[in-house]
């Protein structure tokens, strides 16, 4: 007889707490990746910052992402209190805001190709950093979409919402990463 994963729940930590710990460890690991990116920026470019950055767009997409964190928080809070409708609406809003952020990054890239293409020092950093972050946003959107589909089919409830919690935590982490990336690319001098 094989040991099935859920059979492990009888240990002192609940499956939920174990999942949480696993996710936090993964996020800790990811932090080191972003730390490598950010330190590379300072190693190669010091505090130099091109004047051709589109500051309005940078501030705009930052606000969009912060707002999406709020709606993600609301979605998680709603399902934890049994409010399915609020959960679905807020999750949809989060996905929409995430897509808006991706569109913003795409607009940013169009301009960046002209002002500091990838084969320049700042361009290398800029495209890699925003690209890797956008990859995280896209994977987060994928997970949120799966959660949304499952939610529509009646999955998740007040007592059983790890899928929502995990997806939302990851989404917040992507936001935290941007909170550091944004000034590193746009503001620091």
């Amino acid at each position: 007889m094989a040991v099935q994963p859920e059979a492990l729940a009888r240990h002192r930590l609940s499956r939920m707490a174990l999942n949480r710990m696993g996710l936090w460890l993964f996020l800790l690991s990811e932090t080191f990746f972003f730390a490598a990116l950010i330190s590379s920026r300072y190693y190669l470019q010091g505090l130099a910052r091109p004047e051709t950055l589109n500051q309005a767009l940078g501030l705009g997409i930052t606000m969009v992402l912060l707002l999406s964190s709020l709606s993600a928080y609301r979605a998680e809070t709603c399902i934890a209190h049994g409010d399915r409708k609020g959960f679905q609406q807020n999750l949809l809003a989060t996905i929409a805001l995430g897509l808006l952020f991706v569109v913003g990054v795409a607009m940013e890239w169009r301009e960046a190709f002209v002002h500091f293409p990838p084969n320049t020092g700042f361009g290398s950093i800029f495209f890699t950093m925003t690209g890797i972050h956008a990859f995280h946003v896209l994977s987060g959107l994928l997970v949120l979409t799966l959660v949304y589909m499952l939610g529509r089919r009646g999955h998740f409830s007040a007592g059983s919402s790890w899928g929502v919690e995990g997806a939302v935590k990851y989404w917040h982490f992507v936001d935290v990463a941007w909170v550091f990336i944004y000034p590193t690319l746009y503001l620091v001098t």
């Binding site: 928080y73 917040h172 935290v176």
Partner: peptide, 22 residues
């Protein structure tokens, strides 16, 4: 020379999200 200020403010941002949202 705004780097130290940025770092401080980013850390506050991060703590807010980690504590209240995550």
């Amino acid at each position: 020379g705004n780097l130290p200020w940025m770092i401080i403010m980013n850390l506050v941002d991060a703590v807010l999200i980690l504590y209240y949202f995550m």
